[in-house]
Amino acid sequence: MIHARAEGVTRRFGATIALDHVDLEVRRGEMVGLLGPNGAGKSTLVGLLTGGRRPTSGRVELCGGDPRDPASRRTLGVTPQETGLPASLRVGEVVDFVRAHFPDPLPRDELLDRFGLSDLVRRQTGGLSGGQRRRLAVALAFAGRPEIVFLDEPTTGLDVEARRALWESIRDFHAGGGTVVLTSHYLEEIEALASRVVVLAQGRVLADDSVAAVRGLVGIRRISLTSAVPLTDFDFDGLVSVERAGDRVHLLTPDADRMVRTLVSHDVPFRDLEVRPTSLEEAFLALTGKESS
């Protein structure tokens, strides 16, 4: 059974196309990661699926209905942007406000306890640390005993212990049959929880696959070296792009080991070899740049 769906969805903001014919199906009980660099269209897509926005064309569906109909959102949980929490209100007041919207919310103390917020109930949200705000944001998504949650970078910026605890809560929710959509621009955050990853870039679905497959796609390494030989003469397998900056050459490839072996077996003279992971933004730039050329 489909819990959330986008069908041929396009969303424009003036001249900008934020989403371009996007199809997505999230089945009930599934845990899906939505991965993409900033500006890829993740938050626009989530906004459409959670009733905040209307598509320019195409169709969105949540729990079998129109997400803009409040009845479709009765079993929906969403994380607010942590910077948007009402600064002058106390943690307990914000939690109660959200709980009041649901027919059978979690008891306040149980919710606060589950997310380690019990000691902060009287604190104004403006006085919380980044990590505390993040935990409150995630807690709010679970306040109404949802069946489907959309979590936006739930664990980014948390310390190891808090992150583990949060992962545990999300896994428990999923184990109890809950549907989870995680958005992030870190593959590491998604792979800890989800097995299916949907990759968005420039408003389109670039891949919809397993974590392993997506890692192969976006797990691009940067090999930097200094060489007297113009490397463009060689035909390297798996080379995504070559950049030259002064006397340094940067090779982008998903398989750094193989690339280094090829360099060695071709007797390419080089020195100062460095291998580094690229950021998702760099990987996407390389991938989409390659696609369009």
Binding site: G47, T50, G51, G52, P70, A71, R73, R74, L76, V78, T79, P80, Q81, T83, G84, L85, P86, V98, H101, F102, L140, G144
Partner: peptide
């Protein structure tokens, strides 16, 4: 203009 507003719109109230 606050980021809280789009969140309140996801709550099940008309």
């Amino acid at each position: 203009a606050q980021a809280w507003d789009p969140y309140v719109r996801t709550l099940p109230a008309g």
